[in-house]
Design a binder for these strands. Structure first.
Lengths: 136, 136
DNA sequence: CTCCTTGGTCTCCAATATAGACCAAGTCTC
DNA sequence: GAGACTTGGTCTATATTGGAGACCAAGGAG
């Protein structure tokens, strides 16, 4: 357990980035990644391998074409995902993970699994909370 | 690498939850957690230990009181975080992780660290992308 | 000739986030 | 003892974001 001061001071070597600081580029990056759709897309590509646009749309159930496009563009721009167009008709566009994306997916897939495993417990906690706070 | 069908079929025992399915409770849970502020709050509590409201507000730089309250309530409701009120004046309210929260924070803190470590690379990718796509 | 497909984009409206004012109840200052 | 200050919120008004659905081009199928 580090104090915030120690962490600020210098976690070793030239590591001046701090996700907790509003202005830090790494914080902006985290904001790009810490989002429902981006995380689900990375988890899907991490678990099921390369997929085309429409497969992702079906797989990540409930995502709109607009948000899927937007999230994929951001992931592509940040170097996590590669977009490959096969100029056929109808078009075929395949997305797969680049090394950076594979690393991150490796951290996120467990988050997805954990969520599935612990959802039941969280629902129990929720019921208790709602019983204790009948207002609202 | 599993196919989506296999994963749907049954990943073992009574594990019918699927974060990729729009209607699944676990998906709703993930939506609660896969959010910038919730993740930063969990990371902060995970890295720096119990903190009071105002410490979190300073620590998670840029969060509004409203969003901080809202995210903390959701985390509390789902059984990840505990809220302790010390009835002094001015009031003192301390937040700390419950076991579920500690588990999740254990998965999220590495995501924060990874983001800090890889931000430089992602920024390089971004510049390349923007050079290749001068429009927009 | 018409319809269907894919991978988008564009527009419009609803939902959500942020900024900032406000509040109660002690405590410290003068 | 009047006034200012503190904490942990809430409430409102405005800005930003998300979702629903229309539209599109270039073939191929019937």
């Amino acid at each position: 357990m580090t104090t915030r001061e120690q962490s600020q001071a210098g976690a070793g070597q030239a590591q001046e980035l701090d996700v907790f600081a509003q202005l830090c580029p790494s914080r902006a990056m985290l904001a790009d990644l810490a989002d429902k759709w981006s995380m689900l897309i990375l988890m899907s590509l991490g678990e099921f391998g390369p997929q085309r646009f429409s497969e992702l749309q079906r797989g990540v159930d409930g995502v709109s074409r607009k948000m899927l496009t937007q999230s994929l563009r951001t992931l592509e721009r940040n170097g996590l995902v590669r977009r490959t167009v096969h100029p056929e008709t109808p078009p075929r566009v395949v997305y797969d993970l680049l090394p950076l994306g594979r690393e991150l997916a490796g951290l996120l897939v467990p988050v997805g699994r954990w969520t599935q495993e612990r959802t039941a417990q969280m629902l129990v906690a929720r019921e208790a909370f709602d019983r204790a706070h009948p207002d609202a």
